[in-house]
Structures are given as structure tokens and as C-alpha cells.
Design a protein around this nucleic acid. Structure first.
Lengths: 91, 91
DNA sequence: GACGTTTACGATTAACGTAAGGATA
DNA sequence: TATCCTTACGTTAATCGTAAACGTC
């Protein structure tokens, strides 16, 4: 069981943004060179961490939930900030 | 061995900021209710992820390295963004 | 039945705490 | 020697992939 600690990872946010972009777990899995169940696990862990449902499961496919929509821009900013950190320090 | 993946965690950044604030691993460990070696591990993992040395070890104590100084404001912004995500979604 | 997501499960990897080691004052 | 960080090591928890199951088309 995962508590609502601060265990959030950049990998989780990256995975989330890819799934959101393609509205697909298996395409995100391809892009990440990961198995599809691993993507499911990452999203579930993220949903658990944040205490919200990010995607609406509708049988064959999925789509972003309202909360998921809200997370997208913030996730992008965090990822951007992370890359800024890397480039700032890589010199 | 830790590759330069995107395995960065919020916990690592939080730990980093606390260590930087107190210039002390063992005080950060207290604040985090963690053992001192765990703090060492987290910082080492972060240094590995980013490929830089964040603290200058000087026997008894430590201090921020130049790269560490650069990371502080960026880490603060990432943490702030993370909390914004939580408050935005908690409603 | 084909396609896409989830669950189950065993194996690999990472994180933690206790205890011991190393370095400085 | 007292203080603080690091290394060693055994244990516990998280992550992954394969295989099977479930739900829509």
C-alpha cells in the first residue's frame, strides 16, 4: 500500500503525460520501452499518491478525467523545471 | 548502480533542501524521521541521478558545492509546483 | 475472436535500519 | 575521544515482465 507521501517521481509524470498525449497505455509503453502492465502500475501508483483518478477507464480505451486535465499543465511545468535543473548542472 | 534516468523523486529534493538548510545530514534525518545513513543514500542517489556533487564533505561537516547552490532555487520551485498540484487536485 | 487494460505472480532491483568504520577537531 | 558522515550487510518494500483474465468492439 502506498501512502500519500512525497514519493512522486519524474518517471511517473513522464508516463502520465505520454498516456495523456496518446490516450493509450500500450502506446505509452512502446515509447517508454516498457511493458503495458508496468505503465498501468505507474499510473495507479500516481493516482494513489495524489489520491485522485486521472483516467476514465471505458473498456477498450481511456480518456483523461477532469482531475487528469488539471494535472497536465502542472506536470509539464515540473518536467520542464527538472530538465532545466539537468541542463543548469550538466556544464 | 543508478543510471542517469529520470528516477528523481520529490523525497530526494525535499531531503536535499533540508540538508542544505541545516548544513547537516543528521539534523535532516531527525526532521524526516529517518536514519542518518538513509539520508546519505538519498543524497548519493540524487548526486548520481544528476551526475554532480551537491555537497562538499569536509570530515566532520558538510557544505553546499557550487552545483548544490545552483540546485537550491530550482528544487524549491519544483517542490512548490508539486504542492500546487496536490492542492489543485485535492478539492 | 481481436484489441486494450487489469490482475496475479515470481524475480530482480531499490530503500531502509542497525552496526561498524573512517575522518576531523 | 566525541561528533558526524560513510560503508557493509541483512531485511523489507517497490518495480518489472510474463502469463492469464476481463471488458468492449
Amino acid at each position: 500500500m502506498r501512502d500519500s507521501d512525497d514519493a512522486l517521481t519524474i518517471d511517473q509524470l513522464n508516463t502520465f503525460l505520454l498516456v495523456a498525449k496518446y490516450s493509450s497505455f500500450h502506446i505509452a509503453a512502446e515509447k517508454l520501452f516498457l511493458s503495458q502492465p508496468s505503465v498501468t502500475s505507474r499510473i495507479q501508483a500516481l493516482e494513489n499518491d495524489l489520491g485522485v483518478t486521472l483516467f476514465v477507464r471505458q473498456g477498450r480505451g481511456i480518456k483523461l478525467s477532469d482531475q487528469g486535465e488539471k494535472l497536465v499543465p502542472i506536470a509539464k511545468r515540473i518536467i520542464g523545471m527538472y530538465h532545466k535543473a539537468r541542463t543548469t548542472l550538466e556544464n
